[in-house]
Design a protein around this nucleic acid. Sequence first.
DNA 1: GTGAAAGCGCTAACAT
DNA 2: ATGTTAGCGCTTTCAC
Lengths: 343, 343
Amino acid sequence: MHKEITIYDIAARLNISAATVSRALKDHPRVSKATKKLVAKTSDEMGYRSNSFASNLRKKQSSIIGVIVPRLNSNFMADVLAGIEKVANSNNYNLFISQSLESTKKEASNAQAMLNNRVDGLLVSVAYDTTNFDHFESFIRRNIPVIFFDRVFEHESCPQIYIDNYKAAHDITDHLIKQGSKRIVHIGGNQLRNVYAERLQGYKRALEENNLLFDENLVIISDLTSKAGSDAAYKILKMSPLPDGLFVANDICAIGCMQVLKKEGINIPSDIAVAGFNNDPTATVIEPALTTVNYKGYEMGEVAAKLMINHLVDKDDFQETHSLILRSELIIRESSLRNNLQK
Amino acid sequence: MHKEITIYDIAARLNISAATVSRALKDHPRVSKATKKLVAKTSDEMGYRSNSFASNLRKKQSSIIGVIVPRLNSNFMADVLAGIEKVANSNNYNLFISQSLESTKKEASNAQAMLNNRVDGLLVSVAYDTTNFDHFESFIRRNIPVIFFDRVFEHESCPQIYIDNYKAAHDITDHLIKQGSKRIVHIGGNQLRNVYAERLQGYKRALEENNLLFDENLVIISDLTSKAGSDAAYKILKMSPLPDGLFVANDICAIGCMQVLKKEGINIPSDIAVAGFNNDPTATVIEPALTTVNYKGYEMGEVAAKLMINHLVDKDDFQETHSLILRSELIIRESSLRNNLQK
DNA sequence: GTGAAAGCGCTAACAT
DNA sequence: ATGTTAGCGCTTTCAC
């Protein structure tokens, strides 16, 4: 069996103290160049690897960032994680990643695990039904930074990173109206979550500005799955008169809906102009290609990780950066384009 | 500032020893029920959280599983990770996750980081261009289990988990032939990787069995991105005579290719029957829907994590389970269906 | 520029 | 059923 080499073994071999080895390994300024070189060489030869537990225990910090997301297998979240990993990795931070599977209970137990594992900071996008902050209180009490992204939770000590869902939803609805839609259905998500609530508000605001009446019968709240989209399609088909516009709070659901509408002989965009949200890869595959809001997950991940690491390293205060709003953009495609005038 | 509570604080409060507190917390059999209850209550009241570093340092094990994948933001990998997380989480293992971004160099440095962080085991799907095992040797030397999944590396001490790419590719090619295709183009990936090499072999074998000549001009090797698919489409359009079948080693690339072919007036499936691989969500959105091989990422993740944890817990030998081959299935859709006979 | 020594918080062997 | 003790491997203060 392989015997693990410690700094004491290196020290013994070189007839110096473990303290010096430790310093040399960390490139401490007050160690001679010669010693450093020698230590580096010897530790290589002996197959030394540092023990992060001992070091973390001693230093009382872990260089681990915890990440809790609703689900790992969503296109958007995968992008976010890729962005986070990129930044964390290049700053020598490790990532603990777990998923809440949209359950507050699991979110809480994951948070507890992160706490026990002494993460230096926590990045969270909250579950569908999370309505209280209890499971994060213990982080705040210990001054462990918690940053929310995308699906955020309002708390004075926690910065938030998101896009302007209100404005994006407003703009996309406005676009549908400019294309001649007057009765626009909105398929939205759980109104507890900022992202979905704001999309509904943006939709309302656009109607208002264009002197269209808000009709709550035109709003369908769902879990925004593809299945929810096809279910919604059947509801829409029964509406009379038939709506002439559709704004769905995510692309997956929009596409599920479009597939049924198409099958039932509805022409998109001439009968119903459709818009989604997220710019999912499928949005360019469906025919007609789906108008949507481009939502940069990768960038959001990078920004979240950078903000966290800056805070961890500089201990600069969060006060100044309470909210970080990322740019999003309207991408107009055939599913909503009724004429060339507005292009 | 918050003072962290240790087992000594609890012990002092209760006038018992730290060892008993430690045992009580771990639900050790030889601690009285009463003591356990008391300890649990007190530790709760005092806001105790265990220090995993101290524990890991002492126990010389981490309950951390390292995962290295080519990229986090791919549909398939996200599914795999979700499966891994599910199993790890419910067995109280934490996950260190990093991405190689298809670079052997980064894969190696990530592996080194995992090693230093004392992961108990490593789950790997190798990068595009990895051709040697050097960066994993140090794990083997230390008896830290390394399990490969999907994109595997042949090594006597490392179990592998994958699907039978050879058979799946054979079956799907055979299906195209049965649908009347005689000149079938194959768009494949890097032949260093088992998954892509075997898909090409399966394709070849199916041709052979059906007395069709293998023509290497019909094989296009690429990185299997959507862009590679559209590039390949233009190559295909220049072939004369035009091929009448197309088997692409992944759906994303297949769809990129189909989109161009369609735009250029090729009818799918009547001019060219098309099949992909992976059963990506987009495969049901493209028109015609794409025939493909269903490839269960989530399941693969679960299996990999279970195998790892069983090994970690029971220390059962890997010898017995060198390779684990998961079921995959052919999903026939309109992109390859020329008549109803073969359905 | 280097060394001695203490201690981070926990676990487990041994003792009772 | 509980206590005593040593030690996991590192960092860091203090000393020289």
